[in-house]
Amino acid sequence: MNSEAKAVSGNIGLFVTCLADLFRPSVAFSAAKLLENQGFSVTVPIQSCCGQPAYNSGDERKTRGLAKQFIEQFEEFDYVVAPSGSCSSMVKIHYFDLFGSEPDWQKRSQQLANRTFELSEFLLDVLKVSLSGVDLNPSNGSEGLSDKPFVDSKITYHDSCSGLRELGIRSQPRELLKQSCGVEIKEMSNSEICCGFGGTFCVKFPEISTRMVDNKIDGIVETKADILLGGDLGCLMNIAGRLKRTGSKTRVYHYAELLALETEGDLVDDGIAGEKNV
């Protein structure tokens, strides 16, 4: 670890996110491993949801209730890190607007927002790990890479909208994948266009959502990619679910799973979560 990386230390509260907790524990395990490998102590405070579904449904009262709960759960930590752009953006960007009439909470939310990061943003922008050439997986050693699911695979990347447009996350995961795993992304033409997930949108307007994910898949197919990566489980479940339904062989992972070399198989098909088959 170089001096720049050493300057950052402390306790991290891992913001698991609802979908990783329920559908894809390996994403959160990967995030924890990547952070612990950088010398942080990672704690998982008991948590439920940051309130994003209520916020995007227009229910500000419920959102405030959950936001306050989240702030209380996480404000003791030096940093809060989440393997999701939309969930970290909820805390980083939107909490502030919720508390216009409660200045005390607004202050607390802002203090927490300043210490909250999306995983790749934290690793690259805050820790600057790749710039210092730090191995994200010192214990695995380089020979461990040869039998990993992504070796000799063509990989493409979907930029999730909240991370991309609200937090400016685009280069960070690509840079980390390149530096750490030697992965070169084969870009799709529509990587920055919404996949049609949109939280409750995908079940409120399923037909429109399906058309949007089909358009997304057209872009994926054009790249002839074997693997699709992304940074938000909502989008990935939507795309993976549609890929499988339409008979595609393209596998889907969260980028953290590749970085940590810790996957549970393809997001929808290969294995039941919990049975690690890396």
Binding site: V16, A20, D21, L22, F23, R24, P25, A28, F29, A32, V44, I46, Q47, C202, V203, P206, S209, T210, V213, M237, N238, A240, G241, R242, K244, R245, E264, L267, V268, I272, A273, G274, E275
Partner: peptide, 19 residues
């Protein structure tokens, strides 16, 4: 959801419990 998409089957437990 399932009219046009598969849903991943979750495994034995939640991340928080496994952790």
């Amino acid at each position: 959801w399932t009219s046009s998409r598969d849903l991943p089957a979750p495994g034995k437990s939640t991340f928080q419990a496994l952790w």
